[in-house]
Design a protein around this nucleic acid. Structure first.
Lengths: 248, 248
DNA sequence: CGCCCATTTGACAGCTTTCAAATCGCGTGG
DNA sequence: CCACGCGATTTGAAAGCTGTCAAATGGGCG
């Protein structure tokens, strides 16, 4: 096993809800997996596939999306180190959405059966996995509200806040200082806007000093003001208590 | 036990994915519960609550929703006989959204521990419950895409198609002939539109013969055309095979 | 019969999209 | 080292879908 176990970030996240003991952490780390390095833009899963493996993000970023009949794309979620994407698709049988790599990533593929067996062999692990899918669902619900009922500026700010906080909760940086390696077109696909309008809203947020921008990334400048402008309340992320302070 | 067990619709749904044997069905039916009749508009759960029970819909309709800072409401899902709402809230600890009754309903409240224990005692039940939360998540994803990337007319048509198919899958009617007891304001809150615009779009769908309307409800007139106008593909509902034919 | 709430309708405003063109960065090749 | 090319970002102007506001209509119920 390498100096740092590839699955460690994931186990850390599963462990953050305090269901697991040491033995169970070891059991998760001992799951069989195949490690792959995947370049940006590549697909991990396509709608209609019947995946038999689940993917754990080791490093890098990925996202899930759907495409409507008129060709518009809607991004459904963003995933980072420690996230298990596609537990959904693999358990449900047929993938109902696509999973694509955002920035070059290391991904661990774990056979579905191995995970499911472990989940029911050790209830604590089962609870942690279940909990994880429930948090996933909670984030989806917030996105429905975000896209459905917030104006463009608020919507975009909300996306930034969520990303910042999740990044920090995953131990990947500070919510006050980080980079978002997404194009404005991708931000548009997250928020149900057009790239042009995303550009204008970013400009507006920057003009008021809430964020700072370089060409290809965004940094939060004034967390409190941004969170206020975003109508952002972190409770839907169901972060463990010790990480709640971040949101202040 | 009454002639028809109250939990029967739920057990039927849990069973539809073919994980359960007879013993397990019985175990579900034997779960402890409290039955309540609740009038329209009443809340079952409020955001911030710490529910310790999960609610199974026996009859009637309910919906989940969030309210944004500016007071706009976004409905997140609609629930009918056989649905378990709020497994999410009760497992996650703190409710991140509201659950409200749409039409007078009978609801069975089951203690969370009883469900969780059973889920891990009998893996098949655990799988069925997990599967159910995953389907829930799949529907949320479709709603994100619906609200984010479809125009008003398509969006509304999509909502109608989903409702029709779920109603039929739950054994509550035919997808070609049913009523939707929602106000136009509620339809608006489902789709991220205004009531006025919902009115216009319903009129447009009716003018083209896709639906028929009475004052307080909608009926599908021409399923195929409506599904086409709605960009509707039922696969995200993950209906069991024997019910797939419905969607044709 | 009268009240109240939901539905309709019309006119107008406005947020967001659309369409196009210009600018900018950055990697590549000469 | 510098020009070139291409994708991403910016910007402006105009169109359009959806929202807003207000008033009228309609139905159900006490």
């Amino acid at each position: 096993m390498p100096a740092v176990a590839p699955l460690a970030p994931w186990v850390r996240k599963m462990d953050s809800w305090a269901f697991l003991n040491n033995e169970e952490r070891e059991a998760l780390l001992a799951l069989p997996y195949t490690l792959k390095t995947i370049e940006a833009h590549h697909y991990i899963v396509r709608e209609g596939d019947k995946p038999t493996q689940s993917c754990v993000m080791i490093s890098g970023l990925s996202y899930r999306h759907k495409v409507t009949a008129n060709g518009a794309r809607q991004i459904l979620s963003i995933h980072m180190s420690g996230d298990i994407v596609d537990l959904q698709n693999s358990l449900l049988g047929i993938a109902d959405h696509n999973v694509q790599i955002l920035t070059a990533s290391q991904v661990a593929f774990i056979p579905r059966e191995a995970i499911v067996e472990l989940a029911f062999e050790r209830p604590a692990i089962g609870k942690a996995l279940w909990y994880d899918t429930l948090v996933d669902g909670s984030i989806f619900r917030e996105w429905i509200a975000n896209v459905g009922r917030r104006d463009a500026r608020t919507r975009l700010a909300h996306l930034l806040c969520e990303y910042a906080l999740r990044l920090e909760a995953a131990g990947l940086g500070s919510h006050r200082e980080w980079e978002l390696p997404m194009t404005q077109e991708q931000l548009a696909d997250c928020t149900g806007l057009t790239p042009v309008h995303v550009n204008r809203m970013l400009k507006s947020l920057a003009n008021e000093g809430l964020i700072r921008r370089t060409r290809r990334s965004v940094t939060i400048n004034d967390w409190k003001s941004l969170a206020a402008a975003a109508d952002f309340d972190s409770s839907y992320l169901h972060l463990p208590e010790e990480k709640l302070a971040l949101a202040q």
